[in-house]
Amino acid sequence: MRRVGGAHRGLDMWLLQRAGALVMAGYLPLFAVYAWVAGAADYAAWRALFSPLPAKVGTLLFIAALLGHAWIGMREIFIDYVHCARCLIVRLALLFGLAVGYLGCLVWAADILWSLA
């Protein structure tokens, strides 16, 4: 039977988390330079940063990578520390709750970005 808990899908998760890390490590300096060049001193300029479609798409991809990266990291922490005889169900509940919350954050971020002119 497929085991649902614990570190039995470690390698794919490990790889995905590092892929997400690379996406973020690419986006952050790029965005910093973009914001530096375009300027973000006041509200209008800050809003204008996220208005072009490439900025919206790039930022949403960054947030998706961040949420996936964070979920895998928290999964690792739960696997390491949430240990007891009946903790499998606790761990699964934590992971499920976190996944639902993060999916909510992703939709929320999309709404924030696409509500800008």
Partner: peptide, 25 residues
């Protein structure tokens, strides 16, 4: 990593406020 993971909803909220209106910004 754990701290940042838990802070995500708060950071999204602050980011939303910064973009929502001149007053919130």
């Amino acid at each position: 990593g754990a701290g940042l993971s838990l802070a995500v909803p708060i950071l999204v909220y602050v980011w939303m406020l910064s973009l929502r209106s001149e007053a919130d910004h």
